[in-house]
Nucleic acid binder design. Structure first.
Lengths: 202, 202
DNA sequence: AGACTAACAGACAGGTCTGTCTACTCCAAC
DNA sequence: GTTGGAGTAGACAGACCTGTCTGTTAGTCT
């Protein structure tokens, strides 16, 4: 078992943590490799050993973001209770939580994709992330008994993305609030009736 | 009236048109001044005469985007007819039109803001743009007789931003389609009843 | 004709970026 | 004790970026 010479985690972890922080704040293109090196207290050769190119580091960053955001989304849904229809609304608390957080700067995927060429790996990774999230929402929508789970999932992720996008500008809590209220309205319309719910027309 | 030595518009126009095209495709930070100069067939000194710094050119680009997008939005609303409630839904045709366009790459404002520092002029201009659009939507919502025009406008712009953001990834027409259907549902819920008191036509 | 203006052409300075490379230092395991 | 892996420190190449500056050309106005 390899031991660690440095006390605060492995060099790889320090690099990735630092990159996460800096990339999210300024965008990958706005942060030079030298800055990542300086802030993580690591030698340049070490960085390029773990991540052969900056693009590899950016992809690792996106994977980390995916874990964090998708995790927050599922946690928020879980906290809303056992009812799928409540979970669909509850996941918007993750948006509110993100907006409140200091240094909130919108959706890392969208921001990163915006500064990447069209067919790049970054782009592909972003599409994949969005698809995974939407597939999960579709599943919850189906369990909630939505008339058209695909449509409802599309609507909710559209709202989510809209809220995230606005967040690049100002972490206005009103956005998250409005998104959640809208989600509730859409879920009620799609599922109808009461929790437990069979589709009933209002 | 000053004559033009160059056949295809003034040098300033050529610079701005080229910048518009390149900045939108690759992001302002992804395009060097030299490229703008080469593609617009202009001397460097000429560019720096009209736009003292690259940032000034970026702001001019955003103004041009604002005119184009806000214009498209109003045109789409206008084409939906005289009824404000129809206009609220009709403006989503502008989103569909944008998604269909070759080289569609999402919302220029959000993309540009994503690569700009937090307090920058670019950021301020973006916030201003979003506020102007939302104010206009609020006005239409009010004329449509919405119970809570501010909320409805917030909901619709959220949808719009979500649709634009998803568009960075793939110009999937399903997104615009879903956004429009959702808009119709939200407008119906907020306005209730029908245009002129008749039952809804959908 | 002469002055003025707008634009062109392109060299240049000073900085930043990514990625490579050399040389050195620990530390653990064999 | 030696070997090898992981890390540190930092110079360096080559590209690219913004912005400045010099000199030239052409058309307009007086």
């Amino acid at each position: 078992m390899p031991t660690t010479r440095t006390p605060a985690g492995s060099a790889r972890d320090r690099i990735l943590d630092t990159a996460f922080r800096l990339f999210y704040a300024h965008g990958p293109r706005g942060v030079g490799v030298d800055t990542v090196i300086a802030e993580s207290g690591v030698a340049k050769a070490t960085l390029y050993k773990h991540f052969p190119s900056k693009d590899d580091l950016v992809l690792a960053y996106l994977d980390k973001v995916d874990q964090a955001w998708f995790g927050a989304l599922r946690a928020a849904a879980r906290e809303a209770g056992d009812e799928p229809r409540e979970q669909l609304v509850g996941m918007f608390d993750a948006l509110a939580g993100a907006c409140r957080r200091e240094g909130y700067h919108g959706c890392a995927f969208i921001n990163t994709a915006a500064e990447s060429p069209a067919g790049s790996p970054v782009h592909a990774r972003t599409v994949e992330h969005k698809n995974v999230v939407r597939a999960w929402v579709t599943d919850v929508a189906r369990r909630a008994g939505a008339a058209d789970p695909e449509l409802l999932a599309r609507q909710l992720t559209l709202l989510l993305d809209g809220g995230l996008a606005s967040g690049v500008l100002d972490g206005d809590p009103a956005v998250a609030e409005a998104a959640k209220r809208t989600a509730r309205a859409l879920v009620d319309a799609a599922v109808g009736g009461a929790p437990g719910g069979r589709p009933t027309r209002q």
